[in-house]
């Protein structure tokens, strides 16, 4: 029986008095690759933002390693959705990856050689060393995603939260990202990934949470990834009746 890295109990979140997620009880196993799937508007992004304490829940609580999220943020590496980033910002690839070190440095200390070395390591893991001085806006979608994963690696957290990291990227990058995730898992890291492609869930992940406003099913792929659960999540009628 493995330990839970995240425990969510009775979590409900409402935006403008409309419940987006409802009575969520879930656990993410330590050292797992857990996918969050569900139709559009199922509350996937809301769920991961609540886990990171980025919005105020209506009720319920989240614990990360038995601590409140606020005190566990240092240990979470977050990979944002594409639309959240200001692509006009003048910054190079290496610079973005170095941002992953900020949490460890304290805010007012400068980066040193060890930080740069860590960033270069992360870049080479993602096969992006050659691009280190490129401006982030000059990269393709797949290359950008690699940079953000490199930033997360550089952050050196135990737990990774990713919001649709595989959306709109090339197949080579997709494979590289999944291989990297598996390699990191072998080193003891845990992953919670919002995922949109139902065809690849079994291949890429070992645990799954099927969400549609509340949790439809969760557990290992064998336990939870069943046709009736998927149908239930993606069939609107099951929600309103």
């Amino acid at each position: 029986m493995t330990r839970n890295i995240i425990e969510v109990s009775d979590l409900s979140v409402a935006y403008a008095h409309n419940p987006v997620i409802w009575h969520i009880n879930l656990a993410v196993k330590a050292n797992s690759r857990t996918a969050v799937v569900g139709p559009n508007g199922a509350g996937k992004s809301t769920l991961i933002k609540s886990i990171m304490n980025l919005n105020k829940p209506l009720s319920g609580k989240v614990e990360i390693n038995g601590k409140k999220p606020k005190h566990a943020l240092k240990n979470i590496a977050y990979v944002p959705q594409k639309g959240e980033v200001n692509w006009d910002f003048p910054t190079t690839v290496l610079d973005v990856v170095l941002m992953g070190r900020y949490v460890h440095k304290g805010w007012f200390k400068r980066m040193n050689k060890a930080d740069v070395a860590a960033a270069m390591d992360a870049l080479s893991t993602m096969k992006m060393e050659a691009f280190k001085d490129r401006q982030i806006s000059e990269l393709s979608g797949g290359q950008r995603q690699r940079v953000f994963l490199a930033r997360a690696i550089c952050h050196d957290a135990d737990f990774y939260i990713m919001d649709e990291p595989l959306q709109g990227i090339d197949i080579t990058t997709e494979k590289l990202i999944i291989d990297t995730i598996k390699a990191l898992q072998a080193k003891g890291k845990s992953f919670l990934v919002v995922h949109h492609n139902l065809d690849t869930v079994e291949e890429y992940f070992d645990h799954v949470i099927i969400l549609n406003k509340s949790v439809i099913a969760q557990g290992t792929i064998e336990e939870a990834w069943k046709k009736e659960n998927i149908d239930k999540a993606y069939d609107d009628r099951s929600v309103t009746t």
């Binding site: 933002k49 990171m52 980025l54 943020l73 979470i76 977050y78 944002p80 959240e84 980033v85 200001n86 910002f89 910054t91 973005v96 941002m99 900020y102 949490v103």
Partner: peptide, 10 residues
């Protein structure tokens, strides 16, 4: 400025 949600998360 670069990445508001990430900045919140750290």
């Amino acid at each position: 400025v670069f990445d508001p949600i990430f900045s919140k998360s750290v």
